[in-house]
Amino acid sequence: MKPAPFRIERPRTIADAVALLASGGDGAKVMAGGQSLGPMLNLRLATPDLIVDLSGIDALRSMREEAGHMVYGALVTHADVEDGRAPDVGANILRRVAGGIAYRAVRNRGTMGGSLSHADPAADWVNALSVLGAEVEIAGPAGTRRLAMGAFLAGALATALEPGEILVSVRVPKVPATARFGYVKHCRKVGEFAHAIGAVLIDPTTGTGRALMGAIDAPPLVFADAATLFGGQIDAGFATRFDASAADAALAAAGMADAVDRHVHVEVLRRAATQAASLFTDTRSAA
C-alpha cells in the first residue's frame, strides 16, 4: 500500500504556494498535516503528481485575535487547540471538539485548515465551525477572499476553493459567556468518524441560537435561527421544548430518506441541546 509517485514541494510563502498550485493544475494537491490526504495517497485513491506541502509556511502557523473573533492560521493543529496553545473562542468550546478528533498522534499533525479543505461531512471542524458561524479566509491567484462556512462547503469532500486557491485561516466569532454550546457525536467507537453530529449554540439571554445536524454525507444542515427547533422561542428552558418533528422534517427535506438515520440524527441533536442546557456537562456521546 504505497502511494503512486508524486513530487513534494514545500513553499515558504503563501504566494509561492499559490503559484505552485496554479502551475500544477489538476495534478497538484495541497497538503497541510496530511492526516486526511495521507491515507488516500497510500491507498492510491488519490494520485496527484505534485503535493504542495504548506507546513513550511510560517504565516499559516500563527493566529491572531480580532474584535469579537479569533483567527486561526490554517496550520493550527487539533492538538494546538486541545492544549490551549491556540486560545479558544469561549470556555471549552473548540477545545473539547479538538480533543475528540481521531487520536492524539493524528491531532499533533492534523490541522484545522486541512480538515476544512478536505471537507469530509463527518469531520468535527466542518461541523463545529459551521454552527459557530465561522468564516474562512482564502488566498488565490486573484487575491484573497472570505467565505462563510455555508458557502465554503460545497458538498461531500468538495469546497468552493478555485484552482490555485488555498484556505489560509479560519475566523471564528467569540462565544459570549452567556451562551451555551452543545456538541454531541455518535460514533461506534472512540476516534472513529461520526455517524451523526448534533450541535447547538444557544444564548438564552439574547434569545438567539444556531443549531446543526452533521455527518449526513453532505455539508451539515445548519439552522441559522434555532428557534424553529424549540417551539419558536429560545429562553432558559429551550431544551425541554426540543421539537423533534421540526428537525426530522428538515432532514427529510434535505433528502435523508431513511427513517432510522433521521431518528438517530434528531436524537443526537436533542442531546446536544440537552447538553448545552446543562452547562457544558459532558455526556457519554461527547468525545
Binding site: 509517485p5 513530487r7 513534494i8 513550511g56 502557523r61 492560521g73 493550527v76 496553545r85 499533533n108 499533525r109
Partner: peptide
Amino acid sequence: TADRPLGPVGARAGGAVSAAQPASVAIT
C-alpha cells in the same frame, strides 16, 4: 510538556526543498 510552536509537529519552516519522483519510474 515542552514549549512548542503552533502547527504540525515535524514541519520546519527551514525545509524548503522538494522531494521528487524517482527518475526511473514509469508514470502510471
